[in-house]
Nucleic acid binder design. Structure first.
Length: 115
DNA sequence: CAGCTGACTCCTG
DNA sequence: TCAGGAGCCAGCT
């Protein structure tokens, strides 16, 4: 059991990101909410930034609430876009994704607790 | 031990 | 509608 609400923030973040299904994208806020930290969106981004290249965590499915890539590094951002498009997700002319269509969890869908 | 930074989000003007 | 400022949280120096 875990008496502390945050035994491993990053670890929980990765677990939540792994829940995102193929062909879908989730926002930092959504991931944080699933972990139990509705205000920890910033921590999610920080945790993903520390991910290694050989990780099995689908970090590319995580974008900001506007449906746009929020990575500061242009190279990394380009890679993320390619990976997302490779799963069938379409970017709009403004460079953003339609969360109402590709966003996850979808409205009405329920997400089980991570742990 | 204290302060700074950052793949975020929300509130006002 | 667009722009700016404040709040939150975790990891480093």
């Amino acid at each position: 059991m875990s008496p502390d609400p945050r035994p491993n923030f990053s670890q929980r973040a990765y677990a939540a990101v792994r829940l995102v299904p193929y062909g879908r994208v989730a926002t930092y806020g959504a991931i944080a909410s699933i972990m139990g930290h509705p205000r920890g969106a910033r921590g999610v981004g920080d945790a993903l930034s520390a991910l290694p290249e050989d990780t099995d965590v689908p970090w590319w499915r995580i974008i900001n609430r506007l449906g746009r890539i929020s990575i500061r590094t242009p190279t990394r951002a380009a890679i993320q876009r390619v990976l997302i498009e490779g799963e069938g997700v379409v970017f709009g002319e403004d460079g953003g994704v339609d969360l109402a269509r590709f966003g996850w969890p979808a409205e009405g869908d329920r997400v089980d607790d991570v742990d």
